[in-house]
């Protein structure tokens, strides 16, 4: 999904750069509410995991996909911190790994940080309300949120391409292909996200930001277990 330089024209890249900068600025303020000296290490860990996981492309027919991680990071570290996690990953990838263009950095932050986190977190919160109020619902909600976040991001790319694409290609063809392939890639996103969230829920549910409302009733038990660290 990393957009290279040259797919979108300069005005569109500039506009996504402004959107990305504004999003990161708001996230810097919001993340202060999510982070303390207990949760900050988890946010750093999540950023590092997302970077490593994004190196692992899995085959999907003639193409391949990798974890984007917006929904995963939002559920584990909180949505504002998740935007920062993904932005740090994208910055390192663009500047050191030549993965995603430099002038396209704003586009990639918009698509891979802002869109996936927003869609992923919103979907997760709705599902958390709808599903039974128990910890086992958390990985399910996270997986569905992850699944939806990927074609959503692909759809926003198609919209950006409609505005500022540099090649004359029929838009409906781009939308169909982008959303179609990324729906399949989203299944991988869902599987990885569900597995990782389930693993953390089974070992340290207190470290899962999105599980806090559900385990609030069990706080005393969990704090007691946490004392043995």
């Amino acid at each position: 999904m990393h957009v290279p330089d040259g797919f979108l024209d300069a005005p569109t890249s500039l506009a996504t750069g402004v959107v990305a900068a504004a999003g990161v600025a708001v996230a810097l303020r919001g993340a202060r509410r999510e982070l303390d000296d207990r949760t900050a290490p988890m946010a750093g860990l999540v950023a590092t995991f997302v970077f490593a996981a994004q190196m692992i492309n899995f085959p999907v027919g003639p193409t391949s996909g990798h974890l984007l991680g917006g929904a995963l990071a939002a559920v584990l570290a909180g949505p504002w911190s998740a935007v920062l996690c993904l932005s740090v990953v994208l910055l390192v990838q663009a500047l050191l790994m030549a993965d995603g263009g430099v002038t396209a950095l704003g586009t990639n932050v918009t698509l891979i940080a802002l869109v996936t986190v927003t869609v992923g977190w919103a979907t997760f919160v709705v599902l958390r309300r709808v599903l039974p109020s128990r910890p086992a619902s958390v990985p399910v909600a996270a997986a569905v949120a992850a699944f939806i976040s990927v074609p959503s991001s692909a759809l926003v790319f198609a919209a950006l391409f409609a505005v500022g694409g540099l090649a004359p290609v029929d838009l409906s063809v781009v939308i169909t292909a982008m959303v179609g392939w990324h729906t399949l890639i989203g299944l991988g996103e869902a599987a990885i996200t569900g597995l990782v969230v389930a693993s953390v829920m089974s070992t340290r549910p207190d470290l899962v930001y999105g599980a806090r409302p559900l385990i609030a009733l069990r706080t005393l038990e969990i704090r007691a277990a946490g004392m043995t660290r």
Binding site: F7, P59, V60, L95, A98, V102, F157, A177, M178, I185
Partner: peptide, 23 residues
């Protein structure tokens, strides 16, 4: 294999405008 975006770009014909990254 090419990632989802690269694949779509090649298949639908907008892959050629990609430029090498400055890095």
């Amino acid at each position: 294999r090419p990632d989802g975006l690269q694949h779509v770009a090649t298949e639908t014909g907008f892959g050629d405008t990609a430029e090498d990254s400055a890095t």
